[in-house]
Structures are given as structure tokens and as C-alpha cells.
Design a protein around this nucleic acid. Sequence first.
DNA 1: GTGAAAGCGCTAACAT
DNA 2: ATGTTAGCGCTTTCAC
Lengths: 342, 342
Amino acid sequence: MKKCTLIHDIAKHLEVSIATVSLVLNGKAKEHRISDALAARVLAYVEEVGYKPNQLVKSLRTGKTHVIGLIIEDISNPFFATIAWFIERHAFARGYRIVYCSTDNDTAKARDLLVMFQDQHLDGYIIAPPAGVEKEIEALLLNNLPVVLFDRYLPGLATDYIVVDGEAGVYQATRHLLDQGLARVAFLTTESEQTQMAARLRGYHRAMREQGLPPSVQRIPLAFGGDKEQSITAIYQFLQAHADCEAIVFANNPLTIFGLEAIARLGRRIPQELAVISFDDNDLFRLHTPTITAVAQPVEALAEALINVLLEKLAPGRPEAPTLQQLVLPLSLVVRQSSVRA
Amino acid sequence: MKKCTLIHDIAKHLEVSIATVSLVLNGKAKEHRISDALAARVLAYVEEVGYKPNQLVKSLRTGKTHVIGLIIEDISNPFFATIAWFIERHAFARGYRIVYCSTDNDTAKARDLLVMFQDQHLDGYIIAPPAGVEKEIEALLLNNLPVVLFDRYLPGLATDYIVVDGEAGVYQATRHLLDQGLARVAFLTTESEQTQMAARLRGYHRAMREQGLPPSVQRIPLAFGGDKEQSITAIYQFLQAHADCEAIVFANNPLTIFGLEAIARLGRRIPQELAVISFDDNDLFRLHTPTITAVAQPVEALAEALINVLLEKLAPGRPEAPTLQQLVLPLSLVVRQSSVRA
DNA sequence: GTGAAAGCGCTAACAT
DNA sequence: ATGTTAGCGCTTTCAC
């Protein structure tokens, strides 16, 4: 299959033992008091013939694959794609490879994935979990596999996680609308009850309550990779039924995109007739006419924090009970045209 | 590390030999004339204790990892992200996992990736290669590893590939503009000379030549994941220097996005003052004001074809010299507002 | 029909 | 200081 040099070949050529070569290659020359001269000779020859140890075998022996599983909701969502891009680069730079899979936020699919990955012997996991995978994640944890959740966490599980402060973000966005004297501000969210969506909803409720205004929340169905129409239609119908609605906060990026489509179909003008704010920014929003105000997530910081936390747990010499890292990153409101009444 | 059942355990429990268990598990019971009763008993017990063979070891023995490498230009580009999404699903459904990496179209990075992947013992590769990786791909081929290129191919290399008919697509787009009586039609492309960009450029040249008009081509620098500004500025300057330009065909998706930004900054009105067409469609273009005409790629068909060709080559019992599959998929022009003079 | 045993290529404890 | 060797967990040939 491969015309590759084996450790045996190089040992024979150098007239030393296999163990010597292995030790030198694994940086344990000093430790085993192998002469510098010999070590150098080994290294030189290995270099010369371009010998590469078989990673599969190495993994079998050491139990480390240097592969990290990245389980996200949907790689075609720019938020996750960008996270993936940053994680990939950082991991790569530190000698780790990434295998990723999209769950489409489907519990069953995520379960399958987690089970499959588990016997792929990945070294660690970065996961944006759907609801209901506590058992599987717990199994990972029990096997002592490092896991970092992000975007949302599982309340019943004491894991590391990194999320953003969605409550504060949406609160600030809603206030920004209320402060302009708008009163009929609606919140359009998904059917998910997970922590990230709950937090965003809380932010909205808090702002409305504070202002003494009745909340108006609508849940919109969201299908992955499939039927955009039903989401657009649902928003369209909401807007028709609530013709007096003055402003909308969308709870995520795809929702905003569908919302813009629905608003365009209705011919409502933004922001004169309807002010709009998106949770989670997007290239599109800078270019849209009008430009769209958004609560921006610190994507790069998030990705970097994720890979750092994970690699730290992977590092040797960790104390047995490392402190749990549960970070909440701040969000920023990027005010553009769509939320500002002239 | 894992409290897992071993094949040995199950053999012992059943009081049969390890080999019997292995044979049954690998569907070679019949072949080795193992009694149906025993086979059933083995299967039942395996099921009962949830035994899962160690994939790492299996790979070591069989040489198959059931992992496919997907090497793309940039996962944060929607075209590649969508391809990745489809490939992932199809591969997953057929028992294969995907590891992906972005090259940022950087030759050195791609070389590293290819070398690294090679000793990860992946079963096959789907690659959108940057220029200059012929050697590394050839090495893969020599090792009898299935490789399918896409989006662009390497002229010196007899590999399978699946690309789109960029020449026809851009020709049609340019004609669409010329047919409306526009004459000063420019083509903005990247600095890449790879096959896909060359084809698009040919399409433009052919249309202009046919019409007896002088071509106007500008190459724009494109930095991945980094400096958008320099691309926007370059387009801005081109538009300033060619104030009489009536229409632009952008050679890819990111270029169009930067172009729209530049046009907005200049305050030029689309399509009245400047008609615009993008090669490669994007959600954004449907929502933009005005909506943007685009040459749409058959993304799903492309992804499906890719995984099919690859898995076919992976299937056992392939003849020694399988015919090369070099497909060119047709493109369609989606006419929207940006390219139509009132 | 079934089982013993030889590896796959490497690591690391143990000998020397 | 360096070499010997026993595995890692499984597949598969070959003898019974």
C-alpha cells in the first residue's frame, strides 16, 4: 500500500535497535541517556529518508489521535462556518486536526455522531449540543475525554463551556429601540428552548417589563438545509397579523434573513415602517439596503477561547480535578440604519 | 482509558474462539461455514453488551479508515461551506466520515495538509487544489489513493475531476449584458490563473470579441480571512479610473461582495449607472437591493457527483484501470434586477 | 466448522 | 547507554 520506510529499516541501516530510534524520535533520548551523537545521527537519517511514523499505530499505542471533534449545528450557517475556520487554523497550528459534523440541531443525529466519534478515539470535543444529548456527553466525560460546549450549554451537566451574554445583548438591542420611543417591539425566535435562546428571550422580556410594555413573542419554525419557505411564510403571517408592530428583534441570523425576505415581500419599509435588529451579525447586513443593526458575537475570540480551553485540558500534567471553565463573553450592538428612525 | 468490551471477552463468554467472533462480525460466517445458530448467538451477545470493535485497530489491520479528506479553499465561503455540508451528509449516510481543511488557496499550506493527511491513512480525497500541488497529488495517486478534484483541475494530471462550465456561464452572462446594448462591460477577476478562473475569463473574452468590443479585465487581490479592505479599495479604484464603465461581471462570489461594497461607497446606482452580474450565487444576492443577477452553480449536484465518484472508486472489485471521470456541469444564469436596464 | 497463531508498526518497561 | 521483547486489539490464514 505504501512504499514507506519502517522504523525497523532505519534501525537496521543505523545498526542500532528499534527502541533507540523510537526513543530518540519521541524526545526521550536524554531521559534514557542516549548519546547526543547517536541521537543526532538518528535524526539526520530519519530526515534524509523522510521517515514518518505510522500515525495509526502510534495512536493505537499511545491512545492519542491528535484529532478533535467539532460538532456544530450547521456548517452552512456563517456563524458556525467562521468558528470552524478559526478553530481549524488554531488547532492545525498546534498539531491537531479537526473532524467536524453538523447536527442540524437534531438530537438523534447528534447522538449517532457522538457514539460514532467515540470509537474513532478522538482526543477531545468542541460541541454546540442540541437538546437531549446529556447522556452521550456524560459518557464522553466518564471516559475522561475533554469536552467544551459552546453557544449553548446543558444545564444538568457540569462541563466547561463558552457562551455569549445573549441576555445582555438582546436587552441592549431592545432598549435601543425603546429609547427611540418605539413601543410595539416584537421578538421573533425559534422553537428551541435551549439556554442560548432562553437567555435572548429573557433579555427581551426584561427590557419590555422595565418599560412597562406587553411583550410580543413569536416562535418561528426553522428547517435546516431545507424548506426556507415555511419560515418566511410564518414571519410573513406574523407581520400581517400584527400590522401595528413597529420594530422586530430577530433571535438569530437565519431568522433575520428570512425576516428580511418576508418584509420585502410585504413591501414594508425599513426602518420607517418597521425597525429591525438581528442577533448575530453577517456580511449581508453591512451590504443590505438599509444596512442592518446587529448584536455582534465575538467570533474569533470565541473560537480562540474554545481551542485554548480544550488544548489546555489535553496538555499533560493536568491536575486530576481541573477547575471548570464556564465563560460568558460580552456582545456588542452594532448600530446601523435598520434600527434608527430618521 | 475505556471500560470497553474486547473481542476476547465476548469469545470467552461464548466459549468460542476469537476468530469465530471476528468472522461472524465481518459477515464471513457463511464463507467459513460457521453454523447459523452459532452466528446468531454471537450477534445476539454482541448486541446485548453493545460491543464495538476498536476502529483504530481495525484500520491498522485492514488499511481502511473510512475517513475521507475534504480539502477546500475556504470553509467560510458559502460555496465551499455548502459543498461541505452536502458531502458530509452523503458520506455520513454511507458510513464515511469527513475531515476537512481549508487551504486559503495557499500552495504551501496545501502541501503540508496533503503530507499530513497522507499519514493519517485517509481512504480518499476530494480536493479543490491550489496551483502547484501536482507532486503531492501524484504521490497520493501513486499510493493508489482515490482522488477527485473539483472546482478546478490540474492540467498536467490525469485525475478524476468535476468542474462547472465557467466559460459558457460567463459567456452567457456577458452576452446578457451586451444584448441590452451595453458596450463597456468589464470583467473583474482574481490573481489566480487556475483552470476555473481561466475558463471564466475565456467566456468573457469570447463574448466581447464576438461583439467586436475591446475587453477590459482587472485582477483584484484577494486575501483570505483577513484584509477585506485591500480588495474593496482595488475595486473602488478601478471604478474611479473607469468612470465610463457600464457593467461588470465579477468572477466569483467574494469579489462580488467586495464589489458591492465598493459601488456603495462610490454611490453608483445599480443597474442604472452600473449593471452587475456575479459568478456564483449567494443568499445575499436575492436579498440585496437591487437583487443581484448571478451565474448559479449546481452545488448539490456537484457535491453528490463528487461523493459518488469517490465512493465508487473506493468500492471493492474495481477493475484495475477505472475510466477517468472528468465531468463538466452546466451553469445557469439567474437574471435579477442588477443586470437589467429599465 | 473451529481455533491457534502470526502479524499490522510502533512504544516503553525491563534487561543487560 | 542500548537492546529485547511484550503487547495495543483485531483480521485472517491455515491446520485441525
